[in-house]
Design a protein around this nucleic acid. Structure first.
Length: 291
DNA sequence: AAGGCTTTCAACCGCAGGGTG
DNA sequence: GCACCCTGCGGTTGAAAGCCT
């Protein structure tokens, strides 16, 4: 840690001199938890003193919110959560706390760390500025389809998906697999879909909207030409020339990214093979880092 | 096994905004 | 309007853990 576990040796007064910094001990954690259980959160400076913690109110607040709070989730972000982060970051930028509100149990700090360690790492690998439009496009074209694939795998192997992330995501899938082939071109929100004939059409109802989909294809006239929101549901499409999958990603208050007039379909990104060889125009995109 | 390098993430910092007297 | 305090936010840091040679 930047600060040591020693007491602060600054000369800003005796009280300040006694303030402890750095990693929290189990004893301090217990003190904080016990005090908040008895008296509740808030008034952090007073809380720090009353609880007998030689910490600043800020430090107590941070420790509680980021680590000790009972509903704090630990462990790796799920693909669903990553998907939400990518989407919301596209819309809001580095508004970590705002993004965190859409991920129950996750903190702004955790999301910020995820972005800096995982997402920006990918940008460095690709030699693209992580804040550039090109990188945002790459995210939407390659990363997110792979996340959706992961979501599908997760949902098929675990029926608890809807319980754990129902507030942020509901995923509709069919038997078609995303990214089944390294040369498969994945298209999200473009106007250049091929035209498969609809077979076994079924309807998916979500919130106040009804979507037409089918297990093998979708009538193009039913697809939006650009990113759109359907009430609380964002649509994701995967094109593999023969099949189109439709995913509903239910994200409260989520607006789709405005890609402006720049036609993404003119960009020719393709996924790299799993061994990291280049495929098409896109340099190596290391998906193994993401999970 | 050991040393160096890289990555992760808990914790800190400065600043801004809101509330209060 | 001003000063002060509290809270929350985003950026940054650095110890610990993991990885590599």
């Amino acid at each position: 840690m930047r600060a040591t576990n020693n007491m602060t040796t600054s000369c800003n007064g005796e009280e300040f001199d006694q303030l402890k910094r750095g990693a929290w001990t189990l004893e301090e954690d217990n003190l904080l938890i016990h005090y908040i259980n008895c008296h509740g959160e808030g008034h952090w400076n007073l809380l720090a003193k009353s609880a007998g913690l030689k910490r600043t109110g800020k430090s107590c607040r941070l420790r509680w919110l980021n680590y000790l709070r009972p509903d704090t989730k630990r462990g790796n972000l799920t693909p669903q959560e990553q998907l939400v982060i990518l989407q919301l970051h596209s819309k809001w930028g580095n508004r970590w706390s705002k993004i965190a509100r859409h991920l129950p149990g996750r903190t702004d700090n955790e999301i910020k760390n995820y972005w800096r360690t995982r997402v920006q790492k990918q940008a460095r690998h690709l030699n693209i500025d992580s804040s550039s439009k090109r990188f945002v496009e790459a995210l939407h074209r390659f990363w997110m389809p792979r996340l959706l694939e992961k979501v599908e795998q997760t949902s098929s192997s675990s029926s608890s998906l809807s319980n754990s992330t129902a507030s942020t995501l509901t995923i509709e899938t069919d038997q078609n697999k995303l990214c089944a082939h390294p040369q498969t071109e994945h298209t999200i929100f473009t106007s250049s879909f091929p035209s498969p004939q609809p077979i076994n059409k079924e309807y998916i109802s979500s919130s106040s909207n009804i979507y037409a989909t089918d297990s093998c294809g979708m009538t193009l006239s039913q697809l939006p030409e650009m990113p759109q929101l359907y009430g609380d549901t964002a649509g994701f499409y995967n094109s593999s020339f023969q099949n189109i999958d439709f995913y509903n990603v239910d994200i409260n208050e989520l607006d789709m990214i405005d890609f402006g007039s720049d036609n993404m379909s003119t960009l020719n990104f393709q996924l790299a093979d799993n061994d990291g060889t280049r495929s098409g125009d896109m340099a190596y995109w290391n998906m193994d880092d993401l999970w």
